[in-house]
Design a binder for these strands. Structure first.
Lengths: 123, 123
DNA sequence: GGGCAATAAATTCACTTGCATATTCTGCTG
DNA sequence: CAGCAGAATATGCAAGTGAATTTATTGCCC
C-alpha cells in the first residue's frame, strides 16, 4: 500500500483519530451525564469564563459550532437547569448565560468522564 | 492562561484542527462538485478498491460512518449516477457497488479540490 | 430437509446541524 | 430625532447522522 500523498495521509490520520475519540466521548458523556459533546463544550467554556458567565456571542467564537447551534445548545442546557439566561442590561440584544450550581456540579463530574476517555483513547 | 491538563490541550488542538479542515473541505466539495465529505470518502474508498468495486459491508469498516449512513451515502451517489449497485451472486444479501465512468471522472476532479484544501489548511 | 441464529442492507425515528431568515435592539448620520 | 445599516439571538427548514428495527438471505445443527 503506497502512500502517494503525505498530505492525504495526515488528513486520514487526523480524521480517524478525531472520529474515534469524538465518538467515545459523545457516547460516554451521553451515557453518564445526558450531555452531548457540544453541550459539554458549551458548559465547559462557560465555567472557564469569568464568573461562570458569558454572552452567547462571545461563546460562539470558541465553540466550533454555528451561531444557531450554539443558541440551541444553550437552550438545551437551560431546559436541564444547568444554565440560566439573563438579559444584558447594557445591551438588550445580548443574553448573559450563567452556570447554575447544578451546572457546575455536573461539569465537575463530566470533566472526570472526559479525562477518562481522553486518557484511554488519546494517550 | 495556564494549561492544566496537557491531555485536554491535545484534544482541543485535535478538535479545532479537525473542525477547521473538515468545514473547509465540506464547503469546497459541496460548492464545486455537489459532494458531501462523506460522499467523497465513500467514492474515494471505492475507487481505491480492487476494480473500483466493493461490497457495502466492506466499505463500512473504513468509513468512520455507521452502517446506515454508509448505505445512504451509496444511495445518494447512485442517484447522481456516480455509482451502480449490483446483486452479489455468491451472497444475495450483499450488494456490490461499482464506480461508473462519471464517478471516476468526478473523483479525479474532487481529489484535486481535496488536495488544494488540505494544502491550504493542513500544511 | 426444516428450523433458527446470525449476517447484509435498507429503513424508521429522534435529534443535531448549518443556512437563511425573522426579530429585537443599538448607534450613526443626516 | 427619524431613519436605517448592522449586531445579537431565535427560529423555520432541509439535510445528514446513529441506534434500533425490519427484511431478505445464508449457513449450521438436528
Amino acid at each position: 500500500m503506497k502512500t502517494e500523498e503525505p498530505l492525504i495521509e495526515s488528513w486520514r490520520n487526523l480524521l480517524s483519530q478525531y472520529s474515534r475519540v469524538a465518538h467515545e466521548l459523545d457516547r460516554a458523556l451521553q451515557a453518564e451525564h445526558c450531555l452531548t459533546m457540544s453541550d459539554f463544550e458549551v458548559l465547559d467554556r462557560l465555567i472557564a469564563a469569568d464568573g461562570c458567565k458569558a454572552r452567547i456571542h462571545d461563546l460562539v467564537g470558541d465553540l466550533h459550532l454555528s451561531q444557531s447551534a450554539s443558541s440551541r445548545a444553550v437552550a438545551r442546557l437551560e431546559k436541564c437547569g444547568l444554565v440560566e439566561r439573563a438579559m444584558c442590561d447594557t445591551d438588550r440584544r445580548g443574553v448573559f448565560v450563567t452556570a447554575t450550581d447544578r451546572g457546575r456540579d455536573l461539569h465537575d463530574a463530566a470533566r472526570q468522564t472526559q479525562l477518562a476517555v481522553l486518557q484511554k483513547h488519546l494517550a
